[in-house]
Design a protein around this nucleic acid. Structure first.
Lengths: 248, 248
DNA sequence: GGGCCTTCCTGTCGATCTGACAAAAAGCTA
DNA sequence: TAGCTTTTTGTCAGATCGACAGGAAGGCCC
């Protein structure tokens, strides 16, 4: 700590967003096709640099959330910092990654200024090599892992649903994020046993197929007790592979 | 995203360290007395700016860990980003906070270039108002909360212990971090039941008082199953207040 | 050595929680 | 009304948890 002439470096700060949602029972992440170098034409996470020296970091994340995905009032939490030297060929860029959870809404992607935004299945992304820009593949992996863990201990799953939802809707969230199939009877009992997790609203849901389901809304509790333990064993069908089918 | 003349801002990047350890059954955090403005003379977390534009952020954290606390090879994980405009009166500074866990070693603080480093009890810090520089009070709170949660689900507790330890040592970690008293019999059963958490080494420990205790070392498992549930109820003595005494 | 202290370790019991089922309830379609 | 679907309520055995009893293994003092 000499007082001489040393000056600490100033560095470019960016935000990147891992926006997860459920579409047709599949977990999907929002990607945008890059319109500038580097990685021109490659898919990347939505994000960008701080606007000016006075913009708050989370405010920048919400701004990008609105600009690039047309989303507001969704769950948003910090995921981590990605700042290895060399991760951006333009020079030193430190990126703060955020995890956002969006409910499956009627209109898929509205108000995106870059029309090159699209939802991509997390399954395809993690297994089949889809080349992404920068270290965004790793960021997405970390984001999904975060979501998986938080589904166990917190009420995060309700962020995937709309204002009201059925217990089956909630089960689809758990199945998609964890990539497993769950027993509906036990899931039902467990969810209702977690105090403060969900609150019944009076009404029922349009039964497209079977018995009408009761509707619930998110409860006040953030930490689940007892937790939704991710069990080691799964029903005969085992892991979910693709398609909701599983017609044995 | 105009291509005009706009240039993203460059910002000062710092690291701050929440270094936790156990000293005489109490959870303590390392603080240093500031030698420069702002907050001259106030206690603050160890930390500092990146050395140059090419230093990795975690490397900077390890450098500070070594320089200011004389520690190496301790558990270190990212805690979060603290970057609100205005948190540093000098201008915009974004700080990446890290959580470090140090075992209770023989020599308390060695090799600190700032001799103004000292351990402070977390209890005193969180309850009695001890003014800290910047937003470091909040960072410490977040660090302790992180430690509390991770003690439940991961093998983080072993990071507070040395190479080998007894189950009682481990229990002291849980009691100090959670601020509760635990039943030794149930704790023993639970720890031994968590598969891969601890591995017995053959020997016993010098019994200063009672029956010699078996020694263990940390196991390979990072995620505990079953977890060490933080129960709602506690033995009659209730919360730990101060002092190991509890002589009724 | 014999009490008596301490702490460590093993075990027991009832309450709670979990996973694997059965079966009833409540809609739709034919 | 029969048959199909999905939701909801149970049942039952096994795992786990908190509260506690009691034996094991040292040291200390007489």
């Amino acid at each position: 700590m000499e007082d001489d002439e040393w000056e600490p470096p100033k560095i470019l700060l960016a935000v990147d967003l891992v926006i997860l949602t459920l579409r047709e029972t599949r977990l999907q992440v929002l990607l945008v096709k890059r319109g500038i170098e580097p990685y021109l034409g490659a898919y990347a996470l939505p994000g960008g640099f701080l606007f000016d020296e006075h913009e708050d970091i989370e405010a920048a994340a919400r701004r990008e959330l609105s600009e690039e995905a047309g989303l507001a009032d969704v769950h948003l939490e910090e995921l981590g910092v990605y700042g290895e030297p060399g991760r951006d060929p333009r020079g030193r860029v430190v990126s703060v990654a955020y995890l956002a959870i969006a409910p499956s809404l009627p209109e898929p992607i509205a108000g995106t200024d870059a029309a090159d935004a699209c939802w991509m299945s997390v399954e395809d992304l993690l297994s089949g090599r889809v080349g992404l820009a920068f270290d965004h593949h790793r960021i997405i992996g970390d984001g999904i892992e975060r979501a998986r863990v938080k589904l166990e201990h917190t009420a995060l799953a309700t962020a995937f649903c709309g204002e009201t939802f059925t217990i089956s809707d909630l089960q689809q969230v758990y199945e998609a994020v964890w990539g497993v199939r769950l027993d509906p009877r036990n899931f039902y009992r467990k969810v209702k046993g977690a105090r403060g997790f969900i609150i019944p609203v009076g009404s029922l849901q349009r039964p497209e197929n079977g018995r009408p389901a009761r509707l619930f809304k998110a409860g006040p509790v953030r930490v689940l007790h007892p937790p939704m333990a991710r069990s080691t064993s799964v029903p005969p069908e085992a892991q979910v592979t693709r398609e909701g089918g599983v017609r044995s």
